[in-house]
Amino acid sequence: MAMHAERSAALHELTSAPIQHAFNPYEDNGGTILAIAGKDFSVIAGDTRQSQGYSIQTRYARKVWQLTDRAVLATNGFAADGNNFVKKVKQRLEWYEHAHHKQMPLKSIARMIQTILYGKRFFPYYVYNILGGIEEDGTGAVYSYDPVGTYERESCRAAGAAQSILQPFLDNQIYFKNQTPEPGAEPFIPGNLPLSTVLALVVDSFTSATERHIEVGDGLEVYVVMKKGRPTDDLVGEGKLAPGMAVEELDALGEGDGEKTFLVTRSLKRD
């Protein structure tokens, strides 16, 4: 009797314990991403390091992708899943353009991403996504996702390796959490910060994350999407950016008469 009990316990151990040598189809490639929505612009950023454990695989791997003239997607987590997810999204966007002769609106892309992610609910894309851009009403928007498609529209979001470092910082600086206006001063209104302030916050976020997290560094790519007709003189021109930063306007993917997308780049520490 006792023997029998022992055997079944041993058996239970065998069947319930994870099989140590089973192929693990996932990996964490580090890095971090972040997006902040403004009143008439949206900023989507990511570092360019791709790592595996303590090894840096490459110092330049893209994590932020221009999808349309008004949408930019940042992916973080398992790089292979991220790349293939973006590929699938772009494929769906192209079929949409074939059918409708226009680019998909941001909120529709947001829902479509939800659907694609949930479609693999039981073998998920191990990817944390942040979608940023301009809505049809001209407002800046940020949508954030979990790997199986839960999503919401927010004013800002950080994800990836340094999320736990960056999100509290953004809560404080963007949502004014734990800040009190001086007596008699105007109350804080989230989502109204000027572009230059937002850019400075993004850069500070990434230089800080680079200092404190080994998986963050090498390079920074910041995509800035601007509402149609918005002046660009707070981003483009002599002395508008801090030293060591460069900006270029990206070619339009569609007709090019609407929103504008800029890419701001900067190096990060490589250690």
């Binding site: 070619d251 339009a252 993917l253 569609g254 007709e255 090019g256 008469d257």
Partner: peptide
């Protein structure tokens, strides 16, 4: 050209 991105490309 102003009215067609495809033309510009």
């Amino acid at each position: 050209l102003a009215s067609s991105g495809a033309a510009k490309r």
